[in-house]
Design a protein around this nucleic acid. Structure first.
Lengths: 343, 343
DNA sequence: CTGTTAGCGCCTTCAG
DNA sequence: CTGAAGGCGCTAACAG
């Protein structure tokens, strides 16, 4: 026997009062007599009543929900970011609907549609690795749907965003390698169309130029973020002549497999090859040697992202000026890039 | 100007036909004339119509959604599991609503409530670390709400579950250490009330007993899964006399920091201390030395979990017999536990 | 083949 | 302070 769902109507009938009175009592509206309110609450508790959120949202035409689109939750960076986003959203009284694109452009598109169908009031998006056109995002902005991009964005999308200064961070990290005696610095980059990767490449190249070092194209290799590919590209890079004595990596996710295979190959870090990377995942500190890495303010990024979205959600006017929040990063220096002889 | 949401009614008015005809046309019901169907589809596409899922679900009293409750998505194991669950659910035409408890009992309770309010049709749950009473879960089973526990379960909950044989896996791993010459084997366990941890402890102790080795209580230490605590407990364990020459760890999440601090301390792996662990996360292979670890069939676990839930969702009778699916694990042997001299 | 009606569970006027 | 009525967007009989 299927127990009939406990609804406002059920409670009302049981108590021989009207449905609307029950609704008011349960929502703590002041104009309900104390004893009927008490009776309602008692019965509701007893029956374990939970409001049907679908119905509430439908009636309100308001879900108090925001959609979050992540490239992949298997990256520690994004799952950590999700935590801060969830917390910030909760504090503001919003729920979060999370989707992962699994780095796929197609999946990103269907995820956005699903979130739209679920009537999310706004979007928080970091682009998937494979996303190389942006009509699905622009469709959102055209409809004036509140949207904030974070971390992985793209140029030309008319949306607010929360990002770091990738160019500057890469510039600094490269200078750090140079200061530690590196003369021939390689770069393991992300996919060629990934903007934040390209910005980091540009910063790296600018630093080389600034210090009169030659940026050799054969020392710039692209990776797709899989460990296998990272290993392969690392080996390829090290087979170039002259071999690099320094290495900047676009992400710890690539740096870890790289360090692994370098150890296998008997290449000493940092003596033969100094390494610096991005994201400063917890595991970077647990490497031997510890991995020098650009730390991103994950907590702040999550909070800022939500803050910018809330601003749009609460805005009176439709056309809010776009904002770009650039967060500060910090190079966390560990042994992987420290050479005794230099600096 | 806020663009009025595009609804069935809007399309119907524009086309001067009835709302239900539009509905039928859009859902591909056969009894609609070809040309009106075409007109409807054209306009819907033009207006970028997306059905309001809240309304659809309300009308159907059916959300085709299952709630997934994870201890934390920052653990690679669980985010990988989520991927396979999402895939299996999608194949069956279900959406997934994910929550993370952040290892908190309280958060787990509120997450369940939120998912109930969202009218999920069933639950997939792995218990949070801090969960040590189960009324919130039993409330679900009492209401006959479809539920499958996976990985982290508890005894006495009347629910189907998908698990591994923790006792056997720990027994095997311990025997493997013994075969590699370990005489004094320590165990870094999880929190004292975590069933799967206790099962692993029992398996470890059984293996020791089987081989006539003494299970010293001072060689069994509990960790809370934070890296800091893992480091502290590792140091504490190694300060015991006699010092262990073998170590079993309840999870790679604890083994990684442990290996790190052991290296810091100049303790050689596996020469001084052979190590084996659980979960076989991708980083286990990237460690130096590679970490021997019990591999769980993540994909299969996700699929089985969904399959058992679907069975309940599609069941005619209310009271389906409970099922427990025990999946096979495999000890992936790497250098961390291999000693040349022994075996 | 199409329109009308009622209803999913809840909220919100508007009367009383 | 309480009840009745209408509506949120959609589906599902029931007529025609």
């Amino acid at each position: 026997m299927k127990n009939t769902p406990v609804t406002l109507k059920a409670i009302a009938q049981e108590l021989n009062i009207s449905l609307s009175t029950v609704s008011r009592a349960l929502r703590g509206m002041p104009e309900v007599r104390a004893d009927t309110r008490a009776a309602v609450h008692r019965l509701a508790a007893e029956l374990d009543y939970l409001p049907n959120q679908l119905a509430t949202s439908l009636a309100h035409s308001r879900t108090k929900t925001i959609g979050v689109l992540m490239p992949s939750l298997s990256y520690h960076f994004y799952s950590a970011l999700l935590n801060s986003i969830e917390e910030a959203a909760m504090q503001a009284g919003y729920s979060v609907l999370v989707c992962q694109a699994n780095e796929s452009h197609l999946r990103e598109i269907t995820n956005i549609q699903n979130l739209m169908r679920s009537q999310v009031e706004g979007f928080l998006i970091a682009l998937a690795r494979d996303t190389d056109s942006y009509e699905h995002i622009e469709r959102l902005t055209r409809k004036n749907i509140p949207l904030v991009l974070f971390d992985r964005y793209a140029e030309g999308i008319a949306a607010s965003k929360v990002v770091i200064d990738n160019h500057a961070a890469a510039f600094n990290a490269t200078e750090h390698l140079i200061a530690n005696g590196c003369q021939t610095i390689g770069f393991l980059a992300g996919p060629p169309h990934l903007l934040i990767s390209n910005q980091r490449v540009a910063g790296y190249q600018a630093a080389l130029a600034r210090h009169g070092l030659h940026a050799r194209p054969e020392h710039l290799l692209h990776c797709d973020f899989t460990p296998e590919n990272a290993v392969a590209q690392t080996l390829k890079l090290m087979s170039q002549r002259p071999a690099p004595d320094g290495l900047l990596v676009v992400s710890d996710r690539i740096a870890f497999p790289a360090m692994y295979v370098l150890r296998q190959e008997g290449i000493r870090i940092p003596e033969d090859l100094a390494i610096a990377s991005f994201n400063n995942e917890p595991y970077a500190a647990l490497q031997s040697p510890g991995l020098t890495s650009v730390s991103q303010p994950i907590q702040e990024m999550g909070f800022e992202t939500v803050r910018l979205l809330l601003k749009q959600l609460n805005a009176e006017s439709e056309q809010l000026p776009l904002e770009t929040k650039v967060l500060q990063t910090q190079l966390v220096v560990r042994e992987s890039s420290l050479r005794n002889g230099s600096n």
